Amino acid sequence: MTNPVFTRNKVFTQRTPAGYPAMPGYQVGGGTQTLPGQGQYATYQPNPTTQPTQAYPNDPFAAPNAGQQADYGFPPASNAPTATRPVTLDDVLIKTLLTFGVLLVGGAVSWFTTATNPGLGYAMMFGGMIVALILGLVNSFKRRPSPALILGYAFFEGLMLGSISQLYSTLAGGVVPKAIGATIVTTLVMLVLFKTKTIRNSPTLMRVVFIGMGSLFVFYLLNFVISMIFPAANFYNVTLFGFPLWVVVSLVAIVLAALSLVTDFDFIMRAVENRAPAETAWTAAFGLMVTLVWLYLEFLRLFALFASSDN
């Protein structure tokens, strides 16, 4: 298990038989649709109980079965499953760009607010973080994606990122463009590696990412608790063979975030192969945003730490 946005939805995690795209009527986890009284594939047999009728009883030239529509044993049309357009990669791309556009709007608002009024900017940062956390949990557990909630999450996430970025920019100028550029380059590189099958998603890779993410969470939690009890003591002051520990931790976090992109890309491809509904593109955009925001924050902190160590 890696990104919970994808792993909680079976259209991203299950493959069709033999890994092929789904046949019409196939539902992930439910097998091929079977008609009542038939095998896997229905045969066209007229219903023998249906009596032929004439369209015009008084017409001497009417054919014996004129106007008769044979009943081939299919269920009524009202009971047939409603066909929906399957999701495509273009859908995912469009929804992702739209979601990040809303995030940039929220980021711009909090960036300029923090620059002119730091107190209000910090309030927007903490408020955006709390609301984004709540909306993130709601979107993660919803069975069907809600575009309004996902775009709302993007906006409040942008409020948080804008204020944080402005704070880091004040402490170490130039780190924000570096973090943005590094995030874009890393994403493109991982996409190329995934498309060329240089790096493939696998149960082993997913276990490595999951264990690494759990270890990072424990490290951050312990460091927070220790710094609250002993302000002068934290893991970032520790060195390993003369090498700062914070550099190791940041690099490990960046590698894990980059590998998470590979699993995200694979989940999205599975949804397209499984012919998931078009609305699934919103879930894919939301899941990608979670990983990319994590990657950006790790780059931002790494460059800020490097800048502060040089001063």
Rank of each mutant, 00 (worst) to 15 (best):
G106K: 04
G106I: 08
G106N: 05
G106C: 02
G107K: 04
G107S: 08
A108C: 07
A108T: 07
V109N: 01
V109T: 01
V109Y: 07
V109A: 04
S110D: 03
W111H: 12
W111F: 15
W111I: 08
F112L: 15
F112R: 14
F112S: 11
T113G: 06
T113Q: 04
T113W: 00
T114M: 07
T114S: 05
T114L: 06
T114D: 05
A115D: 12
T116D: 07
N117D: 13
N117A: 10
N117S: 13
P118S: 01
P118F: 02
L120W: 15
L120P: 03
G121A: 00
G121Y: 00
G121N: 02
Y122Q: 12
A123W: 10
A123S: 15
M124F: 02
M125E: 08
M125Q: 09
F126T: 01
G127V: 07
G127N: 03
M129P: 15
I130N: 03
V131C: 09
A132L: 09
L133Q: 05
L133D: 00
G136Y: 14
V138W: 00
V138L: 05
N139F: 03
N139Q: 03
S140N: 13
K142L: 15
K142W: 08
R143C: 11
S146Q: 05
P147Y: 00
A148E: 15
L149K: 03
L149T: 01
L149V: 02
I150N: 10
I150V: 08
L151F: 14
L151N: 08
L151M: 12
G152W: 11
G152F: 03
G152R: 09
G152I: 09
Y153K: 10
Y153S: 11
Y153N: 15
A154G: 03
F155K: 01
F155Y: 13
F156Y: 11
F156D: 01
F156K: 10
F156M: 09
E157F: 08
E157C: 13
E157A: 11
E157Q: 15
E157L: 14
